[in-house]
């Protein structure tokens, strides 16, 4: 599903060049459940962004679902993201002026899906996450757990092959956090969605069947359970 070869990503911080990713080789098969852990500044988020096609590597090649996307232009990358990748963020990133329904609808809108089909799919997604009663509430009227569930509904509405989660429970209490984990793990187990979770919570990271540990922009360990 995801094939990275010699991926490097450098950032300039004033005079210094920081090697956020210093040569990553990684293969992730479809349907895997991978956690990426590591201390702050180890390159977790950078790796996630590269995998998510939000950031371009400075060197190396990337094949997504068998297609080399390294040289894709902005529009092409946007399409690949739209159709294949779902995101769940630590800070939810719901658009505050839109209702839960409208937030979930955004990817469908970006993909020019007809209105009727949009309504049907959004309602279905909200119902499956037990959010039907909150459909017309704005994010500030929802609890943290509800917000993250709306975000999950949005991430999965396009039925992506890959779901990327960046500290998905980082901003939730333990009960909501567990609930969110169960939902995304279920997507992996039941629907075969490739799940990649970035976290520095080792309890959460150890739930994954494959655990990557990053240190200084390199893969330090790659354990399978």
């Amino acid at each position: 599903m995801i094939h990275l070869e010699g991926i490097r990503r450098d950032f300039r911080l004033g005079e210094q060049t920081v090697h956020a990713l210093a040569g990553i080789d990684l293969d992730i098969a479809a349907g895997e459940y991978v956690s990426i852990m590591g201390p702050s500044g180890s390159g977790k988020s950078t790796l996630l962004n590269v995998v998510a096609l939000l950031d371009r590597p400075d060197a190396g090649s990337y094949a997504f679902d068998g297609v080399d996307v390294t040289a894709f232009d902005d529009d092409a990358l946007a399409r690949v993201r739209r159709e294949n990748i779902g995101f769940v963020f630590q800070f939810f990133h719901l658009i505050p002026r839109l209702t839960a329904f409208q937030n979930v609808e955004v990817p469908l809108v970006l993909a020019s899906v007809p209105v009727a089909e949009r309504r049907e799919r959004v309602n279905e997604a909200l119902a499956s996450l037990d959010l039907s009663s909150r459909a017309h509430h704005r994010p500030n009227e929802l609890s943290g757990g509800q917000r993250q569930r709306v975000a999950i509904a949005r991430a999965t509405i396009m039925r992506p092959k890959v779901l990327l989660a960046d500290e998905p429970t980082g901003n939730l209490d333990s009960v909501s956090g567990r609930q969110v984990i169960e939902i995304i793990e279920n997507l992996n187990a039941a629907n075969g969605v490739t799940l990649i979770v970035v976290t520095h919570d080792s309890a959460m990271g150890s739930r994954a069947s494959r655990q990557l540990r990053l240190v200084d922009g390199r893969i330090d360990s790659d354990q399978r359970r």
Partner: peptide, 16 residues
């Protein structure tokens, strides 16, 4: 900023 970033992450091109 966050909203723009989000739209991009959700598959919106720069042109969009």
């Amino acid at each position: 900023t966050a909203e723009v970033g989000l739209l991009k992450a959700l598959g919106s091109s720069s042109r969009n």
